[in-house]
Computed example of a mutant assay.
Amino acid sequence: MKMTSPTVDKPLTRAERKAALLADLEQQRVDMLVNSDYLLRATAPLDKHWNSLKLPLYAVGGIVAFRLIRHPGGMMAAGRKALAGYMLFRKFKLLAKVAS
């Protein structure tokens, strides 16, 4: 014999679903505000140091760009040497992993 429960869950109406979704959106907005405030406080020291380094880095970048425009061959050779050094480093690292 099969028994049915007297309280059957009825599906939510469209208005109830909309209200539930709007409540979820509002909670997500609150969570985002709280998390963004936490993130801003956590990164404040980094931002302060970045602002103190920004101007010198821009100046060095400008000098490098100026030299690259004036003498592109020297910078290209330096770039090739840096790339070759990096590739050599990776090969030595792989060799050390295989050897151990």
Rank of each mutant, 00 (worst) to 15 (best):
residue 3 M to V: 15
residue 3 M to Q: 11
residue 5 S to N: 11
residue 7 T to L: 10
residue 8 V to I: 12
residue 8 V to E: 06
residue 9 D to Y: 10
residue 11 P to F: 00
residue 11 P to Q: 01
residue 11 P to E: 03
residue 11 P to N: 00
residue 12 L to M: 09
residue 13 T to M: 02
residue 13 T to E: 05
residue 13 T to N: 01
residue 15 A to W: 04
residue 15 A to Q: 06
residue 16 E to L: 01
residue 17 R to F: 02
residue 18 K to A: 14
residue 20 A to I: 04
residue 20 A to F: 02
residue 21 L to S: 01
residue 21 L to D: 01
residue 21 L to N: 01
residue 23 A to C: 01
residue 23 A to Y: 01
residue 24 D to V: 03
residue 26 E to T: 10
residue 27 Q to C: 05
residue 27 Q to T: 11
residue 28 Q to G: 14
residue 29 R to V: 09
residue 32 M to K: 10
residue 33 L to I: 12
residue 34 V to G: 04
residue 34 V to C: 07
residue 34 V to P: 00
residue 34 V to I: 15
residue 34 V to S: 07
residue 34 V to R: 02
residue 35 N to F: 09
residue 35 N to L: 15
residue 35 N to M: 15
residue 36 S to K: 09
residue 36 S to P: 06
residue 37 D to F: 03
residue 38 Y to M: 14
residue 39 L to D: 14
residue 39 L to R: 04
residue 41 R to I: 05
residue 42 A to K: 09
residue 42 A to L: 12
residue 44 A to C: 08
residue 46 L to P: 09
residue 47 D to Y: 01
residue 47 D to H: 01
residue 47 D to V: 00
residue 48 K to T: 15
residue 48 K to S: 05
residue 49 H to Q: 09
residue 52 S to R: 02
residue 53 L to P: 03
residue 54 K to F: 03
residue 55 L to H: 05
residue 55 L to T: 13
residue 56 P to K: 01
residue 56 P to R: 04
residue 57 L to I: 08
residue 57 L to K: 06
residue 63 I to N: 08
residue 65 A to D: 12
residue 65 A to S: 14
residue 65 A to R: 09
residue 66 F to Q: 10
residue 67 R to M: 15
residue 67 R to Y: 10
residue 69 I to N: 06
residue 69 I to R: 11
residue 70 R to Q: 14
residue 70 R to L: 14
residue 72 P to F: 03
residue 72 P to R: 01
residue 72 P to V: 00
residue 73 G to V: 13
residue 74 G to I: 10
residue 75 M to K: 09
residue 75 M to P: 05
residue 75 M to W: 14
residue 76 M to W: 15
residue 81 K to I: 15
residue 82 A to Y: 05
residue 83 L to G: 09
residue 85 G to P: 02
residue 85 G to M: 08
residue 87 M to S: 13
residue 87 M to W: 06
residue 87 M to V: 13
residue 89 F to W: 14
residue 89 F to S: 05
residue 92 F to M: 13
residue 93 K to I: 02
residue 93 K to P: 06
residue 94 L to Q: 03
residue 95 L to E: 11
residue 96 A to K: 06
residue 96 A to S: 11
residue 97 K to D: 08
residue 99 A to C: 06
